[in-house]
Simulated scan of single mutants.
Amino acid sequence: MTSPTPQPERLRVAHLNPRVPTPFSLAPDAGRCAAIAAELGLDGLSKLTFEGTIRAEGGEAWALTGRLRARVTQPCVVTLKPVRTTLDEEVERHYSPHVTAPEGDEVEMPDETLEPLGQFIDLAAVMIEELALALPEYPRAEGVEFEAAPEEPAPDTRRPFEGLDKLLRQRDDG
């Protein structure tokens, strides 16, 4: 029995058929999952799959739709105990040659699914970015609650110029 041919992680846009959707399926091996976990600061990444299709969308644009599934382990933000989370996220991206990549600092785009179209669509990069976006920001072990810090009294701001007249008199007298 032969193993399946590995799916390319980058698809050359010129090789995509505009009349037929192109299916894709990525399932990184244990070594690649460990590297991704290290890159994202995870304690573990025991499962990761990214499947979907890329299809032509009006003229020169392309649409990627898919599903990301993962099982991640992160430290609890309170106790540092391992927290396991199962992720199941829908992914949607639209690639257009009429969108330019921002130079230098990142710029907020009005449509977060819109991407500039280059020579390649990097499925691995999309998978890792979507995984990073789907991670819980503050993972907590079951039953753990944050204890609120005691509130400090707010400063009295009802008279912001109180005492200013004294300072002005001292300056004029001095």
Rank of each mutant, 00 (worst) to 15 (best):
126 V>K: 06
6 P>F: 00
84 R>W: 03
107 V>C: 05
82 P>T: 10
109 M>R: 04
94 H>C: 02
160 P>H: 00
94 H>E: 01
37 A>C: 06
113 T>M: 10
162 E>W: 01
167 L>S: 05
151 E>Q: 12
17 N>E: 04
34 A>K: 10
155 P>C: 06
132 A>W: 02
43 D>K: 10
146 F>Q: 03
125 A>P: 00
131 L>P: 04
49 T>H: 03
35 A>F: 06
44 G>I: 15
164 L>Y: 02
160 P>M: 00
61 A>V: 03
88 D>S: 12
22 T>V: 08
24 F>Q: 09
69 R>P: 02
106 E>G: 14
169 R>K: 14
96 S>W: 02
23 P>I: 13
50 F>I: 11
18 P>Q: 02
150 P>K: 13
111 D>Q: 03
174 G>E: 15
83 V>H: 08
139 P>R: 10
9 E>S: 11
26 L>N: 07
6 P>C: 00
163 G>N: 06
17 N>G: 00
13 V>G: 06
51 E>C: 04
6 P>K: 00
160 P>W: 00
51 E>I: 10
136 P>Q: 08
15 H>W: 06
138 Y>L: 11
63 A>V: 03
152 E>W: 09
121 I>V: 11
51 E>D: 14
33 C>W: 05
68 L>V: 09
101 A>I: 09
110 P>K: 03
1 M>W: 10
10 R>L: 11
37 A>F: 07
71 R>L: 14
112 E>V: 13
1 M>N: 10
80 L>V: 05
97 P>A: 14
101 A>S: 10
158 R>Q: 11
104 G>T: 14
21 P>Q: 09
92 E>P: 01
94 H>R: 07
3 S>H: 03
117 L>W: 07
120 F>E: 15
108 E>I: 13
138 Y>H: 13
149 A>C: 00
80 L>I: 03
85 T>R: 07
159 R>M: 05
70 A>Q: 05
6 P>N: 01
150 P>A: 13
170 Q>F: 04
61 A>F: 04
137 E>T: 08
